[in-house]
Simulated assay, not measured.
Amino acid sequence: MMLSLLRPLLVFFLSLLLLLLLPGTQGWAPGYSNGFHYQDISNGNGNGEIYFNGVRLLVESPQPSVLATRGSSVILPCHYHYEPEPSTPRRTRVKWSWLPANTITEPASPEDLAKETEVMVTMGNRHRSYGSFKGRVRLRRSAPGDMSLVINELQLNDTGRYRCEVIDGLEDESVTVDLELRGVVFPYYSQKGRYHFNFFEAQQACRDQDATLATFEQLFTAWEDGLDWCNAGWLADGTVQYPITVPRDGCGGVDLAPGLRSYGQRHRLLHRYDAFCFSASVKGIVYFLKHPTKLNFTEAVQACASDGSQIAKVGQLFASWRLKGLDHCDAGWLADGSVRYPINKARSNCGPPEPGVRTFGFPPLFLKYGVYCYL
């Protein structure tokens, strides 16, 4: 009696086991559906594309890189759509993340993904921003599928690679957009003389002058624009390099072609060099203070304060010279105790025949000069 009852059950389970072992039936279970279906990749176009419910998700950007100005707003374009378009809207989650400029490797490595930090996450009408981007970012949403990121009040440290990632169920597609700021690279050394900064001191020295350590790309662009400097300096990636447009003895030799001379990665605590700083547009105005007499450094600081401003920093002077056309032939004190002046229109009695920021170095603080103020 018992065997007659068990026999149908045994036949059912044996049939089920056989069905699971047949080709093409792996993972099948009766009465279960998760709402997603993926076609076999071998049935696709040979490029490893996976189709989601017979619909392909595409995420694109018409601009792989965007150039912007510090303090302004910028739009990083990102759009997604389906092929073919589904008959009903799908719920998607969008995440923007960021890889700072000084950590980008070329070509991109898997480690880059691990170093990315979240900027903004959104699902439907709900969204959340993070870190220094909190309150400064939003999605444009000008049309269906438009997930372009709007960043307000751009800061020096916002440069880098941004990833727009669209997640629909089990499908995840993304595109990257590089953000660069218009600016200027300038070499910077300590009041004590050449080669006194370790990496972290170089970082701080640039920050003190309203700048950041330059990236390799920024220094390369500056070299293309004619920057020639024979002293090695730290860059944001921890390498030490210097740009040469006119090969000569003592700067790699006359036999080497023009370019960036590199010492490679150096010990960030023990090795000491100068710095290459990057400064972008300033929101205020740098001006030469009209004063009846020349000033020592202490008097220069006070004179700017009495005029309702503050003594200008080196990065502010360079940015105003390069990006706003500041041109003045009088030497003046700056906040770090150096004396400089900016020339855009070369002329007699104003130094070399090409434009640039002329420097007197760090003279004794009791000497008398003019002063550049920042308002």
Rank of each mutant, 00 (worst) to 15 (best):
M2N: 14
M2R: 14
M2W: 13
L3C: 09
S4T: 12
S4N: 09
L5P: 00
L20A: 15
G27I: 08
H37I: 12
Y38W: 15
Q39W: 03
I41E: 06
S42K: 07
G46N: 11
G48V: 05
N53M: 15
L58C: 04
S65P: 04
V66Q: 05
S73T: 12
P77W: 05
Y80Q: 05
T92R: 01
W96Q: 03
P100D: 07
T105H: 10
T105R: 15
P110L: 14
A114N: 14
E116A: 08
M123A: 02
G124P: 00
N125R: 09
R126F: 08
Y130H: 10
G131R: 08
R141D: 07
G145N: 04
L154W: 01
L156R: 06
T176S: 12
G183K: 03
V185I: 06
F199Y: 15
A202K: 05
Q204L: 13
R207F: 11
D210L: 06
Q218E: 12
Q218N: 05
W223C: 02
D225Y: 09
G238P: 06
T239G: 12
P247H: 04
R248N: 07
R248M: 13
D249Y: 11
G250L: 10
D255K: 15
P258T: 15
G259W: 02
G264N: 08
R266A: 12
L270W: 11
Y273F: 08
S279E: 06
A280F: 05
G284I: 06
Y287H: 10
H291C: 02
L295D: 02
A303F: 04
Q310T: 04
V314P: 01
Q316K: 07
L323D: 03
K324I: 03
G332A: 09
W333A: 01
S338E: 00
A346T: 11
A346W: 05
S348A: 14
P353F: 15
G356V: 14
P364N: 10
L367H: 10
L367C: 11
Y372V: 14
